[in-house]
Amino acid sequence: MPSFRMMQNADLIARPSGAPRLELADLCKSYEEGGRTHTVLDGASLQIAPGERVAILGPSGSGKSTLLNLICGIDLPDSGSVTIGDVDLTRLSEVERTRFRRRHIGFVFQFFNLLPTLTVFENLLLPLELQGSLGAQDAERARRLLERVGLLDRSNAFPDRLSGGEQQRVALARALVHEPDLVLADEPTGNLDENMATQVAELLADLVRGERGTLVVVTHSRVLASRMDRVFRLDHGRIVEDAR
């Protein structure tokens, strides 16, 4: 049964020796808009080594968010494949992709997307709770990460009482709390002022390096991109390496 085999594959990389290799091969994605087909990705390909940190640049509407959605399996390409480690996400069922995402991927969103009804600390615990019951070491890890982003004293505050920069720092901690192999960030500094953007960019790069994960950031900020190992550009639906 293919799905069973896929789950076996998913479990195989459940304990990877290090961050997985990410390979995007010939991705195509288009949307129907008012009877017209709008092509967003047109044969996009990319290979990222384990532990590498890359930025993908592109103006608004160039398909950056679509690309991230395909990488994490929220959306499926019209054609092409997304392979993380040994697992081709496009061949997994919806449930298998969800479970894979739950275990292996961490997210940082442009608009933070913290849950307004949970405190800062509870927001951090949520990804862990989704994986099963919470233990004492989980709470400890959450506290450690909050300390690293400098917000331990705001543990019991609700997200809407924090500034934008503070909320994004919580979002960074939340993205890493379950020790994901791959961290995806969608315009993580797009909603912050220059000073705060710099701080968050540094923190993101340091944290992911510290956790030995692979990081893919989509952004139109050259400042943020400059902190990554490699920089790519989305150009008419294809990914090309940026000359810097």
Partner: peptide, 12 residues
């Protein structure tokens, strides 16, 4: 909120 949870890996 539910969308965030789905992104985090909550199955349908």
């Amino acid at each position: 909120e539910l969308g965030v949870m789905r992104a985090w890996g909550l199955e349908p």
